[in-house]
Design a protein around this nucleic acid. Structure first.
Lengths: 188, 188
DNA sequence: CCTACCGATCGGTAGG
DNA sequence: CCTACCGATCGGTAGG
């Protein structure tokens, strides 16, 4: 891992713990063990680090959902696959994902608008799956936007739940979550 | 509304929009229309405002869940009632709730530990309802902690969804959310 | 990668 | 509630 990567990884961790605005470049430099001014040999600005984190996670999500969208399978299976892939991305990048989720709003224009555009695009793919499932009679007729937001809210808190040492593996988490959303908590 | 209340309400709004660390006392004073130094005639410190917000929302949650816990009704109805009351608190305090949810980590000790203790207590009541429902055969046997976290994650994103002008009333939101969690998305 | 430093901004106080 | 101000800290640059 070269210095630039080390700055990125260390920043992900600090931003996650303290939040972007509450993390100073001096904190970051101290954690790495260099002088604050030395950071700027490797990066352009504090915000450039944030941009790198946010857009890399966005890329990861797009890469993993593409094959699922192209697969020719029923909506419920498609949704399960999309959930599994989403959880996998969170699992493999939990610090970066926390920053992506909580600190994207500190991006400035034009990055901010581009970020929102990409996020909407990703959400729209989930809307398509769920909307298709409703048309096909596989899913109940509910407000699609509401259903997708509820799904994402469940998915996006997993970074808080998931610990490498935890009781459930990422696949168990995804399967449990999918089962809960698809079949509900009640028996019968 | 006296000046102290005005400071509180304005701070809730700014903290929600920008986050606690990214909101300055100068921002707050400017929004109100007084000099920054004048704030300190009414409040002790920036953090005292945050404490007021976080603990008041915690109180609201406790007040509304108490009668539900004491009610003698089946677990699924109890859960629906708890969800309805939770959504009601969010709806009536959406700015303050956003701060409660996102900025509690900026509390310093001993407030921080006290806050975590109270939050755990509230979550434990939901665990009790769900655990009881499983024992009674009303709910499927799943990991209780996981189920409660998924439920809260769905509940806590409603402040982003809910707009006074929106398509769904708070009660419709609560009913839809409860139905989704209890019965699932799939038909049959 | 460091030393030295910049102007801007921070939360908060003294005194009226 | 204001004027005037404090020491600390911020992101970042010049120059080597």
């Amino acid at each position: 891992m070269n210095r630039k990567e080390q700055i990125r990884v260390t920043a992900q961790n600090l931003f996650r713990e303290r939040g972007y605005p509450a993390t100073s470049m001096r904190d970051l430099a101290a954690q790495i063990g260099i002088e604050p001014a030395s950071l700027y040999s490797h990066i352009d600005s504090k915000e450039a680090i944030l941009q790198g984190i946010c857009f890399e996670i966005a890329d990861e999500f797009f890469k993993t959902i593409e094959p699922v969208m192209n697969a020719n399978i029923p909506a419920d299976q498609k949704l399960m696959e999309a959930i599994r892939n989403h959880v996998k991305v969170i699992k493999h990048n939990s610090d970066a994902f926390a920053v992506f989720l909580n600190d994207w709003r500190y991006l400035s224009e034009p990055s901010l608008s581009e970020f929102k555009r990409q996020r909407k695009h990703y959400e729209d793919m989930f809307k398509d799956i769920i909307g298709d499932g409703m048309k096909q009679g596989i899913f109940k007729h509910m407000n699609v936007k509401f259903t997708v937001l509820t799904l994402f809210s469940s998915l996006n808190w997993i970074y808080l739940w998931y610990k490498p040492s935890g009781e459930m593996t990422p696949m168990e988490i995804a399967d449990n979550l999918g089962a809960l959303i698809l079949n509900g908590l009640k028996t019968k």
